[in-house]
């Protein structure tokens, strides 16, 4: 019929796009927050739960980063630099994606969903409202899992660390991921030729939100009332 065969097959672009497939496979399972049922609800309990969850998420996400095609080819120092500047964006994007199905609630974990009241109690209402603004953007765009996994990898590769040794190698990682997003969009979202750009344009709000989150948890750290695990502390101190 003169129709381009590959493009009309719904999964055509997906099968062709190796990077997207690898990222989908690498995507870690969600972990549980497991708030201590014997401790009464309080701001300290909520923050302790969030910090503990973040620490465990970080371990999983460092493992995930190693599965981003090309990431392990960077020097160890550059891998560290990217993670030290991009870790909070990755954690937030995961919360955002988990929260897409809900209204005004953030799914920090399947067993730890924060609504406005809980956010107030934990003293993170402003922060959670900014994260909800991101949720709203991606809801409006109807972001899919493929786009989410590529965008998350892009946010790490594009974390603008000042310490990068091999700038060209990081640039080529960015190019591979950006190319994967563009290929995916031109195969799967032919109705909107600007969709890849629209997704990239959500990253400034993500950067801003992550900076705010790091700042918030740094001041909590300074108050010293909330126990924090070593990896989380290490990365909070890396800014």
């Amino acid at each position: 019929h003169g129709l381009p065969q590959k493009r009309t097959f719904p999964l055509g672009g997906l099968v062709e796009n190796k990077v997207v497939s690898l990222l989908l496979v690498a995507e870690p399972e969600s972990i549980f927050a497991m708030p201590d049922p014997t401790v009464p609800d309080s701001d300290i309990k909520a923050l302790t739960t969030l910090c503990d969850l973040a620490d465990r998420e970080l371990v999983v996400n460092i493992g995930w980063a190693k599965h981003i095609p090309g990431f392990s080819l960077l020097s160890l120092a550059d891998q560290m630099s990217l993670l030290q500047s991009g870790w909070m964006e990755i954690l937030i994007l995961r919360v955002v994606f988990r929260s897409l199905a809900l209204e005004d609630k953030l799914v920090y974990a399947e067993d730890y969903i924060m609504d406005e009241e809980q956010s107030k109690l934990a003293g993170v209402l402003d922060l959670n409202n900014t994260i909800l603004q991101l949720v709203k953007k991606y809801k409006t765009m109807r972001i899919d899992k493929e786009e989410f996994v590529v965008l998350k990898a892009i946010s790490l590769a594009n974390s603008d660390s000042m310490q990068i040794e091999d700038v060209e190698a990081v640039q080529s990682l960015q190019d591979v991921l950006h190319g994967a997003l563009q290929d995916y969009e031109s195969a799967q979202h032919t109705e909107d030729p600007r969709r890849a750009g629209k997704l990239i344009m959500t990253l400034p709000l993500l950067r801003q939100t992550a900076a705010r989150a790091v700042q918030h948890f740094c001041s909590i750290k300074q108050e010293g009332r909330v126990p924090m695990h070593k990896l989380f502390l290490e990365l909070l101190e890396a800014r």
Binding site: G63, A65, K66, L76, M80, K230, L231, E234, A238
Partner: peptide, 20 residues
């Protein structure tokens, strides 16, 4: 770099949680 011992160790470790 000394300050980032855990990150360093996790990146060097060949088995990531995703593999397990």
């Amino acid at each position: 770099k000394e300050k980032h011992k855990i990150l360093h160790r996790l990146l060097q470790n060949s088995t990531s949680p995703v593999d397990l």
